[in-house]
Every structure is written in structure tokens, then in C-alpha cells.
Write a protein that binds this DNA or RNA. Structure first.
Length: 553
RNA sequence: GGCCCGAUGGUCAAGCGGUUAAGACACCGCCCUUUCACGGCGGAAACACGGGUUCGAUUCCCGUUCGGGUCACCA
């Protein structure tokens, strides 16, 4: 003979046949080595991949890897209203393109591995019901029939009486319903949610140790939070407890907006008879907003989306290295000491994470990225720029692709060696950097520095053109330039010129500036000799002629 | 408003009772140098405020202020 609670739970969950014990057996403790941490990222598919989610995922990955543990992906798709088509795939491909590997769950779009699934909450509804049924049987959960209007009204009276808002204690109306009453309302077809009968007492305090923030103390939860929404789908809180227990998560590392619900979560684990995981709450990456700080916003800040970095052409390594400097600030020192070591060798530690949110620093990202790019060889850079341009700058792609050897040649200038150039922070800097290598990108509107006259410049260019040896190496080229100086009234040695500036029209640097302007249209460029060799005799001569004509007008 | 958390140069940050309060980015100057970049050297720039505790507080405690988070059938 069933007691009233059993009758109630049976009526609420006619389809449930399994028991919590059976689920325990189905998802046994993982056999991992002592101290191995099992972490996870559990995003909801509400849009494109957000920097904050990526950052949190990276911290989880690092934590698992540092302990020979495991990192998995679970999809929290319990809110159909907010769900975005393809959202999960975008997150997964994002992880993949940044080399953030998943060990279990969704590891790529439409690819699931592991024995602790399903890894998608919408497919786990039956599992949640097993536990809710059990809770109802034990009197630890109950159906609540309060309408939205009733709850709103209750809220108003609470506010008027200046007491805490929420569904708790005396305000938890349906708590008082007998199992028989509840049963008859269910049989009548009244819609309901299932709430926890909270054993908490607001006047007691609960303490826990957050792995990042340290010891935190808060009042116990006494709210009868919703376990199952009226459509039978669980809330985040309940799904978190069930999933992370069954999937044997040891460390829950998530955004710190969750910190205030830890008392709820701890209570849930206790009521369910689960051992609670360790928590680590990651501070958000912030953005400066006229004087103040705020979380990076999907709507307002383009840099909040991982797409942004791909569009701008930041190498994945740059983003990863930058994020790591935010995560553990001693990463920079480590990197300086170990310039070529793989990131996985870095001793990452949750305890080294900042307690408060860091402002996103584009300057810093650019600096990190310049270093990353400076360390790449010409082939790598060329391939990366080609790939970037193909996706985001078709015209530039066609130019480069028309002559790949030429493209590689221009990106090879001054690359490698002990003093690499750091001109580019991202691939989208490349079109401007490379413009003058192409005739249609050459800007002929340049002007001479003020201390040089057009007539002198023309004389320089004519003399240079006559002496121009396309085969000269760097040293010979520069010596040739110096040799031209005396006859033109310029000083071949800068130091000498500085001693007696009145005796000359300028020095060899001015001569090279004139040639540089004629050939590139710019005052500042990488090594001119290399540029001219790459451009080739014909183009160089054509530009010299054009410059002479321009200055002779 | 209740409950949490935080506060060191413009930014990211070391620091754990006695320091000339590191370092990095950005900024400025100088040097190197045919330009630029790279590199080197130097500069400006900080412990939010008020009370305690202590021989001594950036460090510990309490308030204030400011900033952030959270108070849903969203995650």
C-alpha cells in the first residue's frame, strides 16, 4: 500500500521507473589517478562564443590538464526561449579553432564522446525526474501551484513589509498543502512547478572555501527554489547538482555571478545525498565605460565575441597568451624565461588568479600579439595572412595569391634574426603594411621633408638612378649611396654632418629618405635595399622616374 | 534596499607587520641607427578615506566611500 507521498510522486512522475541507486551504478566514480580534477564547461547556446565563456573554459582546461584530469563539455539547453540556432556549434568550433581541446561530452559540432552522457540537458529530463520523484516521496520537494500573479502579489506585500522577497518559510504557500490536496489538484490538471522544501534557516550561516576567492560566508538558503519548471525541465540549480554529481565533476569553475547561489547549490547537494564539488569562481573580464568598469557586454562590445579576434586577424596564440596573462599574472615572467616552451608547461594555478575583474587591455593584447607574430617565420606568417585575407579581405587575398612567392618575400623582410620587427599586431595590419609593394597601393602623394628642396631631391634621384645596381647586396647598396653624397653636397657620415651641419645640404640619411620616398611613398619602412630587390628593377626605375617627374613640375 | 566580494601608478599586477613599494603594457626623454622597427638606458606615475591594534602599518581589525556581483518557472 502506498502512502500519500508515494501516491503523489507516482502521479507526478508516472514514467519514472528507475531509482537514484540505479543511476549511481550506471555512472560510477571515475577511475582517475589520485588528485586528478574533473572539470567542465557548461554553456547555454544563447549566441556566439563569448570571451568570458572562452576564458572560463580555458581555466577549466588548464586545471584539468595540470592534474592529469579531464575536461568535458555539457550543453545547458534547458531554456528554449533563449536558445539560438547553431549556438552550440559556434561555441564548439570556437574552442576547436583556438586549440582548446575537450576530453569528453561534445568535443566538436555533432560529435559526442564519453560514458557519462547524455551531455545535453534537454536529453536528461528523465534523469532529473528520477531524483525529483525521490525527493517528493521523501517530502523534500513538493508541487507548487502558485501563479505568476500570486507570486507577484506576494512579492509586493513582502516589499511593503520590508522583508526579503522570495518563496520561503511562511510565504511558501504551497508548502502547506497536504499530499492529498496536491494530488487532487494534479489530477485535476492544474499546472505546477516542483519546489524544494528548503531545510535551511536564514539565521544560520554557511561557509565554504572558494579556490579563487578564499573563504566565503553567507546565510543559509531558505528559499524553496524551483527544481522543475512547469514544463518538467529543470532549472540551472537543480541540473547543476544532478549533472555534476552524475558526471563526477570534482571542480566547478564558473563565472562569479554564481557565487551568490552557492548556498542553494550546497543545500541541493546535501538534500540529494551527493558530495559537493569544490568551487572556483572566476572574475569577469571587464571593460572601461566612461570612468567606470563593467562586464564585457555582448551587445555593446565587439571584443566580447571571439569572432572579433578572428576578424581582426589575431593569431590564436596571441589571444591565448594574453588571456593567460590575465589568468595568472606571472605567466609573462615565465614566458620571458621560457620563450619557446609550450603553454602546457606553464604551472597554472587557480590560487594565482585575481580576485577582482580585470579590465580588458587592447594595448596589452597588441603587445603580446606583436611578440607572437615576431617569432613566426615568413612561411607561417604568409600562410596565416593568406588564410585571414581569404576570409576577410578578398581584394588583398587576390593580390597576394597572384604571386605567392612575392607575398612571402615581402613578409620575409627583416623577419627572423635577433632583432625582429614588430610592426604587426594582427593580420588586418597587413594590407596597410604591404600597400606600397603593389602599384595600386602605392601612394604618390608624399611630400619631401621641409629642409630638402625639390631641386636637390631631383638631383639625388637622377644620380641614384644612374648608379642604381639592382644586384647590390645590403652593404654594397648602402656604400653606393654614400659614394653619391659628396658630389650632391650631402655628407656621407651622419656624425661628421652633425659637427658641421652648415657645410652640407644634408646627410646620407636624407639621401636615403629621398630614395625611400620615391620608391615606397613612405618616410618609414623596413630595409630599403630588400624592398627594392623584391620590387625589381623595372618597378623601381618606374617609380624613380615618376618621382623625378613629380618633383620637376 | 538585503546578501556577498573587492579596492596598490592610466591598465594588468608583485607584496603577506619594518622594502629606496618589484615587473609588464601604454606614455615621455636619451642612446644605438641611412628611416622606421628592434634593442639599451632613464623619467613621470600608486598603497581610496577615517579610526583603532602595534615600537612600527600598504599589509591585521572596525567603520566610511567607491566599484562589482546577486536577489526569476534565465543560465
Amino acid at each position: 500500500m502506498m502512502n500519500p507521498l508515494q501516491q503523489l510522486s507516482a502521479a507526478m512522475f508516472p514514467d519514472v521507473t528507475a531509482t537514484p541507486e540505479q543511476l549511481e551504478e550506471q555512472y560510477p566514480a571515475r577511475s582517475l589517478k589520485e588528485g586528478a580534477r574533473v572539470t567542465r564547461i557548461a554553456p547555454s547556446p544563447t549566441g556566439y562564443l563569448h570571451l568570458g565563456v572562452f576564458f572560463t573554459a580555458m581555466i577549466n582546461r588548464l586545471t584539468a590538464s595540470a592534474t592529469d584530469g579531464l575536461f568535458y563539455f555539457r550543453l545547458e539547453d534547458t531554456d528554449k526561449k533563449r536558445e539560438v540556432e547553431g549556438g552550440a556549434d559556434d561555441i564548439l568550433t570556437g574552442f576547436n579553432t583556438y586549440g582548446l581541446t575537450l576530453d569528453e561530452g561534445f568535443v566538436a559540432p555533432n560529435t559526442v564522446v564519453g560514458d557519462y552522457g547524455p551531455y545535453q540537458q534537454s536529453e536528461r529530463v528523465g534523469i532529473y525526474h528520477v531524483y525529483v520523484k525521490s525527493l517528493v516521496e521523501q517530502g523534500l520537494a513538493y508541487p507548487c501551484f502558485c501563479s505568476e500573479e500570486e507570486r507577484a502579489a506576494a512579492r509586493e506585500t513582502q516589499e511593503a513589509q520590508k522583508c526579503r522577497t522570495g518563496y520561503y518559510g511562511p510565504f511558501a504557500k504551497c508548502r502547506a498543502l497536504s499530499p492529498e490536496e496536491a494530488l487532487s489538484r494534479i489530477q485535476r490538471g492544474d499546472p505546477y512547478v516542483v519546489r524544494l522544501r528548503s531545510p535551511g534557516d536564514e539565521s544560520r550561516r554557511i561557509a565554504f572555501d572558494d579556490l579563487i576567492k578564499g573563504k566565503i560566508e553567507m546565510p543559509e538558503n531558505d528559499e524553496d527554489l524551483v527544481l522543475l519548471k512547469s514544463d518538467g525541465v529543470p532549472t540551472y540549480h537543480f541540473a547543476h547538482a544532478v549533472d555534476d554529481h552524475l558526471m563526477r565533476t570534482t571542480h566547478v569553475i564558473r563565472g562569479d555571478e554564481w557565487i551568490s547561489s552557492v548556498p542553494k547549490h550546497l543545500q541541493l547537494f546535501r538534500v540529494l545525498g551527493f558530495r559537493a564539488p569544490k568551487y572556483a569562481h572566476v572574475s569577469p573580464i571587464m571593460k572601461e565605460d566612461n570612468g567606470g568598469k563593467r562586464k564585457l557586454s555582448k551587445r555593446k562590445d565587439p571584443e566580447a565575441a571571439m569572432h572579433f579576434y578572428a576578424e581582426q586577424g589575431y593569431p590564436a596564440d596571441s589571444v591565448l597568451e594574453y588571456l593567460l596573462t590575465i589568468a595568472n599574472s606571472d605567466f609573462e615572467d615565465w614566458r620571458r624565461a621560457n620563450p619557446d616552451a609550450p603553454r602546457s608547461k606553464f604551472p597554472f594555478n587557480l590560487k594565482k588568479m585575481s580576485v577582482s575583474g580585470a579590465l580588458f587591455d587592447m594595448n596589452k593584447l597588441n603587445d603580446v600579439s606583436k611578440n607572437v607574430i615576431a617569432a613566426m617565420d615568413a612561411d607561417t606568417v604568409t600562410e596565416a595572412i593568406l588564410a585571414w585575407a581569404e576570409a576577410y579581405d578578398k581584394a588583398f587575398y587576390q593580390k597576394l595569391n597572384a604571386d605567392r612567392a612575392f607575398a612571402k618575400g615581402l613578409f620575409a623582410i627583416d623577419r627572423g634574426g635577433p632583432k625582429p620587427r614588430k610592426d604587426m599586431a594582427k593580420w588586418s595590419d597587413a594590407p596597410a603594411y604591404a600597400a606600397y609593394f603593389f602599384d595600386d597601393g602605392f601612394d604618390s602623394s608624399w611630400e619631401l621633408p621641409e629642409h630638402l628642396t625639390a631641386a636637390d631631391a631631383v638631383a639625388v634621384l637622377k644620380a641614384y638612378k644612374d648608379a642604381y645596381d639592382p644586384t647590390a647586396d645590403k652593404q654594397a647598396w648602402f656604400d653606393g649611396l654614400k659614394a653619391l653624397c659628396p658630389a650632391l653636397g650631402f655628407c656621407p657620415e651622419v656624425k661628421e654632418y652633425k659637427k658641421n651641419p652648415d657645410r652640407y645640404k644634408g646627410h646620407v640619411g636624407d639621401v636615403s629618405t629621398i630614395v625611400r620616398l620615391a620608391v615606397t611613398g613612405r618616410r618609414n619602412t623596413p630595409d630599403l635595399c630588400s624592398i627594392m630587390q623584391l620590387l625589381g628593377k623595372d618597378r623601381v626605375n618606374a617609380r624613380l622616374d615618376a618621382a623625378i617627374a613629380k618633383l620637376s613640375v
